[in-house]
Design a protein around this nucleic acid. Structure first.
Lengths: 350, 350
DNA sequence: GATCGGGCTTGGAACGATCAACCCGAAGGT
DNA sequence: ACCTTCGGGTTGATCGTTCCAAGCCCGATC
């Protein structure tokens, strides 16, 4: 069953059509839509009536052409790698779409063109062609060159993530206080009576990883507890988390772990599973990101939850400043995460 | 630290600028971009050179206005509810973005405006205002009225999901063969030696749920195995999955469960955890959706994997037909899922 | 040598909105 | 009485591209 369809093309009503019906000029209709307070109440009502009658909807392309704006924000994001717990994108994307809508923007998804090695030409084109007004970029820690390129091109964008390389960078940014999150997790474990708390984190070249790690070490030191031989830095995979946990557990005998991600935490849980140890009771584990995995796991994985909804709000606020004329670039925003306590951090120690 | 920035507005080069540099007319430049084969090779080269020299990028708004097309596809999707394992959106969205790009389209995200109860006005506006050329709609099973509305408005859209109400609906659709997935899971368990296989699914009014369930019952019957008292229909939450499993386990004593979702399967695993039973060994469990949770869980959750990349490809193909002139609507496409075998379905029985 | 035709090129006119400037009458100040 | 101001509305120009119909050039044909 297939067919050729010929859609009737009764062309849509334009501003001029509405103007004629309402007995006013084009501009007045335009004002009725964009600056209603410029019109007298009775005129406004008459125009509105004509709009409703004709079912008029402004043509975006024409408006975009004239105003040199598209009210479209490009979201540059890479998908969560399979096999990791990392699914914050879903939540963040939705929060961003919602917040943007209330501000009159729509979100357009952009991913890297695998054929473009620099991964930047496409973005530049989108901006220059007025396809998007600005970008929201994530994964800033991974793409220093790209960020530099965007800045050099005077591209308009807001970063979810600090400008690690240049704290004084000229672009707006919003980030989560990663150290505070790890500190929260560590304090929580100390509060439960733990004194030997290990860290499983990312490689040293990960700025976020080091940031999170600093929260852990700072709190331990503040409580006079030792960090020596208690930390491991590995790749963000379940397998590395598992083996890092195995080594630390045998050598330093921690009673709890704080992990730089839920993925690594899952690695610890894999190890517990293998060794027949009970999560929470034999070993406390805290993850990071509050992924779906943390939420769904039997017993639940205690995890640091990123305030993605607030991040989205701050990003949209920054976008509005960026796109205002003259554009306004405020200071970077750092938001505190929270801790979701679940079974994996176990009961208070005897 | 905040500041007012005044960006230099060296206005972008236009078609006319390129034409002047290349010593040809606007139309020739336009042809060089859109119909290169209409030009003599040397002219084309000269134009291309001018384009590169000026760094010209066609203005989308102007093109959209003239051609009455935006090359933007609206993706209507709702976020995964927190606390469920359901994270297929991430993968599907990315697949769709990638496939669309190769076809020259971009994806714009759309969610329901909570203030608009019908949830349809917004979509209609977007189409009429030429903001998007067409929609991709998901969750078709949940929104019958919306689908009907879109059809009545002659809106252009492709559905991810069968037109359950009217199998002969006029819009293109792509769906996964849900029954086949459940059948795959059931066959797998039978192959492992199970004969008492339970079903935990969704309420009867869920068409997808019933479809998946039919795969399970069909296979059992084909093998002469009983389905009586072996099935339960509940909400898609971990808690309901857990209690459904508890009841079935006590009353019908199945040795394996096929679940309509990974979320429900996680419910079963929660129960095992409570009762101190071992997943896979004491009870085999198969989920549906191949979520990150299934992948990350210690031992792993065997699950039915949806061919989302292929779905995306078929959807884009359907979109291209829909947007061609005259538009072409092909028959619906049904794609087979696959099974990802992991620890939760356990070893071959005794 | 005039005509024809095909391949390229050309200027002008849309597409549908907003911007900038202007217009008009009534109110208020000097 | 005259000038200014201001609210409320109009008109022509413009954004940058593609469509349209006509024009040009050149070689081939009669």
């Amino acid at each position: 069953m297939s067919r050729i369809v010929n859609r009737g093309a009764a062309s849509a009503p334009t501003l001029a059509d509405v103007a004629e019906v309402a007995g006013v000029s084009r501009q007045t209709v335009s004002n009725a839509i964009n600056n209603p307070d410029l019109l007298r109440a009775d005129t406004l009502a008459r125009v509105q009536e004509a709009i409703d009658e004709l079912g008029y909807v402004p043509n975006r392309a024409a408006r975009n052409l004239r105003t040199r704006a598209s009210h479209l924000i490009g979201l540059r994001a890479r998908p969560a790698p399979e096999g990791t717990a990392h699914a914050l994108m879903d939540r963040f994307v939705h929060a961003l779409v919602d917040t943007s809508r209330t501000a009159g923007y729509h979100i357009m998804l952009v991913t890297d063109d695998p054929e473009d090695r620099t991964g930047t030409a496409g973005y530049d084109d989108l901006l220059r062609s007025t396809a998007v007004d600005a970008f929201v970029v994530t994964d800033t820690h991974l793409d220093q060159p790209q960020l530099a390129f965007l800045e050099s091109r005077r591209a308009r964008f807001v970063a979810f993530g600090r400008p690690w390389a240049d704290p004084d960078a000229g672009h707006p940014w919003v980030d989560v206080d990663h150290a505070a999150g790890a500190a929260l997790a560590t304090e929580h474990l100390i509060g439960l009576g733990h004194t030997r708390i290990g860290w499983i984190g990312w490689h040293k070249d990960s700025r976020i990883g080091e940031e999170r790690r600093s929260g852990w070490s700072r709190v331990l030191k503040a409580h006079g507890l030792s960090t020596t031989a208690m930390a491991s830095r590995v790749e963000d995979t379940i397998a590395s988390g598992r083996s890092a946990a195995a080594v630390l557990l045998d050598e330093a005998r921690p009673t709890a772990f704080v992990c730089a991600s839920d993925t690594l935490a899952m690695g610890v849980l894999h190890l517990l599973d293998e060794r027949g140890l009970r999560m929470g009771e034999d070993l406390a584990v805290v993850g990071y990101d509050d992924s779906l995995v943390a939420q769904c796991l039997p017993g639940g994985l205690t995890s640091v939850r990123l305030p993605l909804e607030q991040v989205a709000e701050e990003i949209v606020a920054a976008l509005e400043g960026l796109l205002a004329r003259p554009s306004y670039v405020g200071p970077g925003v750092l938001l505190p995460p929270t801790l979701r306590v679940r079974g994996s951090s176990g009961p208070r120690l005897g």
